[in-house]
Amino acid sequence: MEKSSFESTQEFFDLWLKTYEATTGRIVEMPALGPAREKSEKLMKGFSTSVNLYAAWMDSTANFQSVFLEAMRRLREKMAAGKEGEPNLDNKDLYKLGIETYSETFKEFMKSGHFASDMGKLNSHLMDFQKYNREMLEENYLKPMNLPTKTEIDEINKELYSLKKTVKELTTQIKTQEEKK
């Protein structure tokens, strides 16, 4: 795939991230002090989680923009070639050509290890971010209001699963013994 002008967006963002990590990022990563130390550390962790997600999101966005540009370039080329050979491209032909070109270009990009690794990173940071938000919600709102949390419901579900499994195993054992009689 050819180079696109969105690489400058990517460069700008890389620079921003490096600057952040060398300045504000260091303050955020600093060990917390004082009586509310544990809470502060958890709150500060949220900053890094959000920045990581933001960085991964920007990476993906810049990549997608580059692919869009590349698809547009290819479409322009095909249309120019079409004009020479077959001058009367109607709306439907143009639409088909567009879908075909965009679809091919995106598939080519999505097959690349680069996209897979980017998507993997984005997903991983998204999960970290959502997990952090849930933990904060549980700790700061649900628990003080004495409301059940997802973690507690999961514990009950695990217990339920284990009980059901035991009942099924015992039922099978009883059935087998009855059949033997």
Partner: peptide, 12 residues
């Protein structure tokens, strides 16, 4: 197949 190798499925 390609994507699955880069996904942290356990985390999801």
């Amino acid at each position: 197949h390609i994507w699955a190798k880069s996904l942290d499925v356990d985390k999801i």
